[in-house]
Structure formats: C-alpha cells, structure tokens
C-alpha cells in the first residue's frame, strides 16, 4: 500500500528541483534537449554522481568521507606516472588503482571503527596524507601520461542504435546506480541504515556495526577510484583534478535529502543531488556566471539544504544546536 509519495519520501524535492533546472537550461538553450547534449551532460555529471553514491553509503551510516577528492587526484597522478603512455600497462595499473582504493577505504574504516577516531578527523587526516604524498611524488607537476585505452571510458562512447553515441561514463553511471539501489535493498543495506540511525541498538540486534561501516568506507573509496578513471580520461592529468570533490559529493548527498548523522535518505536521491549540482553549474555557465563562483554556490547550497532538512525535522524534534559531525560509539 505504499504510495509513490511514501517511497520517494523526503527525496521528492530533489527530483522536482532537478526537473526544474533541466527545464530552465532548456529554456536558455533549446539545444540541450537533444540526446547528444543530454548525454554530454550525463557524461560531465558521472564522476560526481558516482562519488555521491559512495559518499551516501558513508553518510547514511553516520560518518563522513572527506578523503575522496585527494584520493581521486592520487589515482590519476599515479596512473599517469606508471602508465606513461604504455598501452600494455593499462590493465595492471587499473588493477593496482582498485587495490589502492580498497586499501584507503579499509584504513579509513578501520581507524574510524576500531580506534574510535571520529571519521571527520580520520578522513581529513587521510586527505592531508594523500595530498602530501602526491606533492612529494610529483614535486608539484605530475609526470607521465595516460594511455589511450585508459582514457577511453572517460571520453569515448559506444554506438547504440537509436541513441547514437552513448558515452561509457553514462553507462557506467547507470550500472553504479542500479548496483547501489540493489545493494540498499539487500539485507546489508537495511543494516547499514539501522547502524546510522542507532548504532547501539543495531549492535545489540546483531549487526556487525564496525564491519558494516568499514565496508561503507571501502565502497566510497572504490567509487572514488571509478570516478578517477573517468576524470583522468575526461579532464586529463593534473595535480588539481580531484580538488574539492569531497565537498561537492557531500553537497550532492545533502541536496538529495540524506540527513547528516545517518539513518535517513535514499541512494538514488543522493545521486539525483549530484545531477542537480551539475545542472546548476551548467545553467550558471550558460547564464555567463563566472566559474569561479562555483564554490560559493556550493557553500550556499549545502547550508541551505541542511537548514531546510533541519526545519522539516524541527517540527517534531529540535535539531541539535551543533550538528554532530560524526557520532561515535561510546
């Protein structure tokens, strides 16, 4: 008997906003509605959307992952240096990147859950460690170059009859979205949300809380790896490629109505939040607003979105005066 409204629940506004923005873009630029430019939009949005999905797992479990931006940079820089134009190195390097992603996620998760360091601190530390390592390794300017096959997913596409050329990014995004949606409906997904809502009750109900949270960090780091591969191809190699992406991802998740602190919100809404953010940038760009304003816009949005969520919740439960960045088990 669940109505659509119930299902979409708190997420509904984000889909509405997305629709509105797309319409607005189409008004300014009627060409936008052509499949090719819609697909190009999806392609641009894909890395952030994938990061948002990863960030969602962490946030809904009651934590934060601030390390994804610098992880993306590390992955791209490492790939360029190790591949250095050598086609045959592509696959081994991708395997290595995945391994590196797993490792970073695991370390984030284990430090947070086993050493009881708030994830805000753990992943902020990881951010600094990773960006320091990149700087040390590159001396400021990344060396080497990516192979053509490495760049393919980020810039090329595949001909699908009826759609023309569909970017790999878009297809990968759809696969990630489908995978995440299925995961959230699995038993694991249920335990993840319960952990974010009340980790004491979850642990007493037999949820392996530490393992569940660690897995969330690993998924976030893997999402960063996929995003890095797409961005490497799409944006090229630079030591700034992942800069600020952690905040964009968190903004996207919050825009999707996912509550900071955990326990509420859907993964598809978080993904839609990323699409909203990208659409907004597209619109501002079309209107001739300087790209330099992007971070200002994001800052305003994240505060507004959290305030909006607090207002809705505040009807029944007063929001804490200081939003806890990361509730830790006692």
């Amino acid at each position: 008997m669940r109505t659509l409204r119930d299902r979409v629940g708190a997420a509904a506004p984000v889909f509405g906003v997305l629709l509105l923005l797309l319409v607005a873009i189409a008004v300014v630029n009627p060409n936008f509605l052509e499949p090719a430019s819609l697909l190009a939009y999806l392609k641009r949005a894909a890395p952030l959307a994938i990061l948002a999905v990863g960030q969602y797992f962490v946030i809904v479990s009651g934590e934060f992952d601030l390390s994804v931006g610098s992880l993306v940079t590390v992955q791209v820089v490492v790939a360029a240096r190790l591949i250095d134009g050598d086609e045959s190195a592509t696959v081994p390097v991708i395997v290595l990147l995945i391994g590196l992603g797993l490792l970073v996620g695991l370390v984030n998760g284990l430090i947070t859950t086993r050493l009881h360091v708030p994830s805000f601190v753990t992943t902020l530390g990881m951010l600094l460690v990773l960006s320091g390592a990149v700087f040390l390794w590159t001396g400021g300017a990344p060396r080497g170059s990516l192979s053509e096959s490495f760049r393919e997913p980020g810039r090329q596409g595949i001909d699908i009859p009826g759609f023309g050329q569909v970017p790999w990014s878009a297809l990968i995004l759809i696969a990630v979205a489908a995978g995440a949606a299925v995961l959230m409906r699995s038993a694991w997904g249920h335990t993840l949300v319960a952990t974010g809502d009340n980790d004491r009750a979850a642990a007493l109900a037999g949820v392996p809380v530490e393992r569940v949270r660690t897995t969330a960090f690993v998924l976030s780091a893997l999402a960063a790896t996929v995003a890095a591969i797409l961005l490497g191809g799409f944006a090229g190699v630079s030591a700034q490629v992942g800069e600020g992406l952690e905040f964009s991802a968190i903004t996207a998740v919050v825009l999707g109505g996912v509550v900071l602190g955990g326990g509420r919100g859907s993964v598809l809404a978080a993904l839609a939040g990323a699409l909203v953010l990208e659409a907004l940038f597209t619109l501002l760009n079309l209107l001739g607003v300087s790209g330099a304003l992007e971070s200002t816009v994001q800052g305003v949005i994240i505060i507004a979105a959290v305030a909006y969520a607090a207002r809705r919740a505040g009807r029944r439960r007063r929001p804490p005066a200081v939003p806890e960045p990361s509730p830790q088990p006692a």
């Binding site: 038993a187 249920h190 335990t191 949300v193 319960a194 809502d197 009340n198 004491r200 009750a201 979850a202 007493l204 109900a205 037999g206 949820v207 392996p208 326990g263 509420r264």
Partner: peptide, 23 residues
Amino acid sequence: AEGLALAQSVRENALLVLHAVFR
C-alpha cells in the same frame, strides 16, 4: 537507546535481527 532505530519503520525494526544475522 538500545532497542529501536527510531527513524526507521515498524517493519525495518521488526526485521532487523533477521537482516543482521539470519539473512
């Protein structure tokens, strides 16, 4: 404090042990 995930539905709470241990 220990029995319920308050923001989850009745169904989610009632099934939590099964989801966690007896999938």
